[in-house]
Design a protein around this nucleic acid. Structure first.
Lengths: 356, 356
DNA sequence: CCGATCTTCCAAAGCGCTTTGGATCAGACT
DNA sequence: AGTCTGATCCAAAGCGCTTTGGAAGATCGG
């Protein structure tokens, strides 16, 4: 068999070198900006390359250099709900910008979340990527150990809540954020505050719960498991969680919601009951600043702890590229503070529950 | 310089062949399932490969075969709003499933929408992908001509509303869907129906507008440009568009909204005015069936034309892989019908405007 | 027991780049 | 004139796989 490509055809280096009566070396160097070639021939080469529409074969270059100029991302699809968390697209958009600026491309693998390790392993070992971003670390995450062992550069978005093995990560201060948010509600007189959290095993959710419980305990309140929910970031999840909680004998007067998506469901559930956030009940969200779903308004519609996930994507990519360029440097870490903004969705606790 | 990889190291084919005292040929064939090798040696090879953790170098394989086993997607970021359309992540998730099932990977390029052509060209010519998916075709789309010229397999999600050049596409019947939706509102007595559409240049938006106008004309209504809005798929866009339209002297009694995201903004704008969809005013949306933002309920919260974007991603990927496997076959096309579901967000037109 | 036919394996030639280790030549300096 | 030094350029050796075109060895009918 001929190596396929029935139609696609572009000139290769050898042919171009014959046309130009120059060696392949010179052409390669001219095009890649090496100094060993005179400016006049460089110009000549570039002109010819344009004229004949010569493009180096990426796979050959990758093999020759040992660099793939690509970064891998594994996007898990919740096997339970078939949901792909919308924060990924936003994070990936941020990271993608940085890759593009630096001549890197991005390799995506969309896999059911229970098959993630396989996907990471495949990417790492096939050497088609020079580095990886690890998304949504869990407690005692396999992937971190595996990648450390392989020795492939990687950056974790978030932190393994387990033991602090040395690895590079970028995270927001989830504990601090949710502690702050809870304190805000407490100081407004709320005592029954529900937490509509993310999936229970994720590092994010664990830290957020911790911050929430710390604030409660500081005020002498024992965290009540029945006021906490864990789940996938879906609108319906927020709707269900809030609907259920509002049907209990002693419903919460305030909600802490892990993202704007379930918060929209939460708002809908409250609207079903004729309750208006900010007047009858309070909502604080964590706002990832999704580009298509902004917490806008003046004041913003939701009181929120805010941290741009897109910026996190950008910065994670930068860190990763730095690590790739300077592998000798040890792990880098970056913890981001979270902005707290007061919006329209919070108010004082109703008097009767307040005195309770 | 050594071809980098300071840490990462896995055994290569040559070394494994020496260990096994077999030729590289035999090992390659054994691992790739060719019949010219006995079952006993195949077992031996596989066992050794596992033991020594041998993984073929992907870039070498790609160069040798001429196949990259990768599909490219170019995701545009609106340079105006910095928005990445959330339907992409859903489409890509669907396509990604199919790629994974067939041993393909996905290469993503996130670029400002005005630099798309460059990104497509780079992907196509560097031969690091075996095919491409073209997203959001515009009228007289450059990319289609370019890819046809290059001869790289591709599938367009949507159709160029310009001249019907021969190319492969998968589309939903946007015209039919919006015609149907408009007719539904007309038959409920609505006469002033607003269209909150997508970006004006996109094939989707053009076809939807066409369907909307056809239905209006069928009922003797001249389409009114002042009732149409075009914009990025953002929550705030829906909010602004509806707020503005409701402030006019003769506001619409029904809205046709291009996606659930702006529809949420629309609903918020109406809530600001104390209006309840289904009772005071009507909304019909086009529902892409986003996994994290489902139009659920019984009946669903929004009356909608529904078509799963995830399924479209899956199917587009299948079509593309078929084309790659059988390049001699001509372009394939697939037009999907759209489901129409009546939900809670529509009702009869208010009496006063009805008689108007 | 011998040629024919499978079966099983191998040596070697790519794939299209990058990079090493010179070679060549002009100009500068003794 | 002879040597040295940069400035240019080149031939050839990889990178690690796949695939071609045989070559042995085993099997078998006659």
């Amino acid at each position: 068999m001929c190596p396929q490509d029935p139609n696609v055809w572009t000139m290769n280096l050898k042919e171009l070198s014959e046309k130009l009566r120059l060696s392949q070396t010179t052409i390669s160097r001219a095009l890649n900006g090496y100094p060993e070639v005179s400016e006049t021939t460089r110009k000549r080469v570039i002109a010819a390359a344009m004229r004949y529409d010569y493009r180096p074969n990426g796979n050959a270059a990758r093999l020759a250099t040992g660099r793939s100029m690509a970064i891998g991302h594994v996007i898990p699809v919740s096997s339970e709900h078939e949901v792909v968390n919308p924060i990924f697209s936003e994070f990936v958009a941020g990271a993608g910008e940085v890759y593009a600026l630096n001549g890197y491309s991005m390799q995506l693998s969309v896999v059911p979340d229970d098959r993630q390790v396989i996907a990471y392993r495949a990417m790492a070992y096939s050497r088609v990527v020079d580095g990886l971003i690890v998304h949504v670390p869990q407690a005692h995450d396999f992937r971190i150990d595996m990648l450390n062992e392989i020795g492939l550069p990687f950056v974790v978005h978030g932190r393994d809540p387990g033991e602090p093995a040395p690895y590079s990560w970028l995270d927001v201060d989830n504990t601090g954020a949710f502690r702050r948010a809870t304190e805000y509600l407490l100081s407004a007189g709320h005592r029954r505050i529900a937490l509509i959290n993310g999936r229970e095993t994720t590092g994010f959710a664990i830290r957020r719960q911790k911050g929430y419980e710390m604030a409660l305990r500081d005020h002498g309140i024992t965290p009540d498991r029945s006021l906490m929910r864990f789940g996938e970031m879906m609108e319906t999840y927020g709707h269900e969680a809030v609907s259920e909680l509002m049907q209990t004998i002693n419903p919460p007067t305030a909600f802490l919601v892990s993202s704007i998506i379930p918060a929209i469901g939460a708002r809908r559930a409250l609207a079903d009951l004729g309750l208006e956030p900010g007047r009858d009940i309070s909502i604080v969200i964590h706002d990832d600043d999704l580009s298509y779903l902004r917490n806008t308004g003046d004041p913003p519609m939701f009181t929120a702890t805010r941290s741009s996930i897109r910026s996190a994507g950008r910065r994670s990519a930068e860190l990763l590229l730095d690590i790739i360029r300077q592998p000798q440097r040890g792990p880098v870490q970056e913890l981001w503070d979270v902005e707290f903004v007061v919006g329209q969705s919070t108010g004082p606790a109703p008097a009767e529950t307040r005195s309770q």
